[in-house]
Computed example of a mutant assay.
Amino acid sequence: MNRVAIVTGASAGIGAATSRLLHERGFHVYAVARRLDKMTQLAALGIRTVRADVTAEADLTALVDQVVTESGRIDVLVNNAGYGSFGALEDVPLDEARRQFDVNVFGAARLCQLVLPHLRAQNSGRIINVSSVGARMYQPLGGWYHATKYALEGLSDCLRVELRPLGIDVVLIQPGGIDTEFPRVAGERLLAASGEGPYAGYARRYAASLTSEARGISAPAVVARAIGRAATVRRPRARYAVGRGARAALLARWLLPDRVYDRVLVGLFTAIADAAARGAKTSS
């Protein structure tokens, strides 16, 4: 009998790569995203694609009902849906902050609530939450995004010990620099929120650093392989830090006092932004 997996945020990047990998490893995969037209390549492989918004209660309830009705079980839930909305705290509207929490935290939590009765009945299962190294570090102008990742990690840690006696594993994936739409979307939202006004100079430099960081980073398949291990090994680790700079960032955060880390962080992003600006002048 094929194991059954639900993967959210499957229209591109990490979610799409994870859906393909789990399918190749024999899982019956339900790939979930808001737009079905973005998942036609997954559907062509035989992966079941489902339209659902993780912030919509009716969509999530229908999704879990569909999976259980069609497949009879759920073995793995990969909570991958999420996005980064950057900007100065003073500039970002609270409605946007709430939406980011709805997508990055409450959507994942609600799916956990909906699948857990089925995992408990089986006395087995895996919940794999895709977090970020941003859950253990921080960046300027990223307060709301990092707050969601800190929250997801705290929720996952509590859930891991809560569910262990029931035979259910909870795993955190902590990607570093990954070649997805994240840097572009985060940079665009940063400029939209803080590209004008008192934070404009800082915002423009940091947006340039996000664009520059997107070069030479790890492929989504690197994260997908970590998720594949977490889904299949007998005893998964609590956390998998993967992708460019992930382990180095976590080590630096652990070793350095806060004030020292602050100076290193600002200096690093200033250097990246300056290099990006010099590259732009050279190419022009």
Rank of each mutant, 00 (worst) to 15 (best):
G279H: 02
A248W: 14
R247W: 14
A10D: 10
G245C: 13
P165A: 08
R3Y: 03
A88Y: 06
V171M: 10
V130R: 00
L268H: 08
R99Y: 11
T18K: 01
I74E: 06
D102V: 04
L77W: 08
Y30T: 05
G187S: 13
R205A: 11
L210S: 07
V105L: 15
W144Q: 09
G134K: 03
I6P: 10
V92C: 09
N2E: 14
L166N: 04
A52K: 05
A238M: 08
E188A: 14
I14W: 10
V78M: 03
N123A: 14
V68S: 09
E213F: 15
F269W: 15
V7L: 04
E96Q: 13
Q113P: 01
R205L: 10
A33F: 14
Q174R: 15
V105I: 08
V29P: 01
G201L: 11
G143L: 14
L268I: 00
A214G: 11
D65K: 11
L166T: 13
L210V: 02
E24R: 14
P165D: 10
V103Y: 04
A186S: 14
V78N: 02
R215Q: 13
R34I: 11
L63M: 05
L159E: 02
G167E: 09
L172F: 00
N80C: 03
V260P: 05
Y199P: 13
G84T: 03
A200E: 06
A226K: 03
G279E: 08
H118S: 00
Y150F: 15
S218E: 08
G125T: 01
A81F: 10
S11Y: 00
A203M: 07
S284E: 15
P198L: 14
T61L: 11
L22F: 00
A135F: 09
R278P: 00
L119Y: 07
I14D: 10
F269S: 01
I217Q: 00
A192H: 08
A56P: 02
D53L: 12
L21N: 08
G177W: 07
A17P: 04
L159Q: 00
F101W: 03
D95M: 06
G125F: 00
C112F: 03
M137K: 01
S194I: 13
G134C: 06
A44I: 11
I227H: 02
A44E: 15
S194D: 01
N129C: 11
V92G: 03
P257F: 05
I217G: 02
L63P: 07
S19R: 05
Q174L: 13
Y30E: 10
I227P: 09
G177L: 10
N123R: 15
L190S: 04
T148W: 00
L21Y: 04
Q122V: 07
A31F: 02
V161S: 13
I168V: 13
N104H: 13
L163N: 09
D95K: 05
C158G: 15
V260H: 01
L94A: 13
A208H: 02
R239A: 07
R234N: 13
L22Y: 00
I227S: 03
S124H: 12
I47W: 00
P183M: 06
G9I: 03
G72I: 10
L268N: 07
R73G: 08
T232D: 14
R247P: 05
D91K: 05
D59F: 04
N129K: 08
Q139V: 10
L89K: 02
A200T: 02
L63V: 04
W144D: 06
T232W: 02
E162P: 06
V161I: 06
L265W: 02
H146V: 12
